[in-house]
């Protein structure tokens, strides 16, 4: 990430920071679902869309909200990783 982007992100207010973070997570989720689909894997990954109008959401709520998405994404990546590893092993044999 460039310094300019980091500085620009830092200047955002809390709501927009959360929005930007949510956007990145949704994009990651979308890409993982595409990969899973290409690999003929079933995927139940869902990433929530942060609603910027809910300004009253606390930092505590935000962390819980994001942790669930991050955890699900990690699990999806692990599944893909395992799948590729198994495939590689199978191909080598």
């Amino acid at each position: 990430m460039s310094e300019e982007l980091l500085i620009a992100y830092n200047k955002l207010d809390i709501v927009e920071k959360r929005n930007a973070m949510s956007n990145e997570l949704m994009m990651i989720g979308q890409m993982l679902r595409t990969i899973s689909h290409d690999l003929n894997m079933e995927s139940d990954l869902k990433v929530k869309n942060y609603d910027s109008s809910k300004e009253n959401i606390t930092e505590d709520d935000t962390l819980t909200f994001l942790y669930e998405d991050v955890y699900n994404i990690k699990r999806e990546i692990l599944q893909i990783f395992n799948y590729i590893s198994i495939k590689k092993k199978t191909n080598n044999h």
């Binding site: 990430m1 460039s2 300019e4 982007l5 500085i7 620009a8 992100y9 200047k11 955002l12 207010d13 927009e16 930007a20």
Partner: peptide, 12 residues
């Protein structure tokens, strides 16, 4: 700031 961020993000 949001405009600035979006521009930086696009460039990135």
């Amino acid at each position: 700031n949001l405009k600035e961020f979006n521009e930086a993000l696009k460039a990135q």
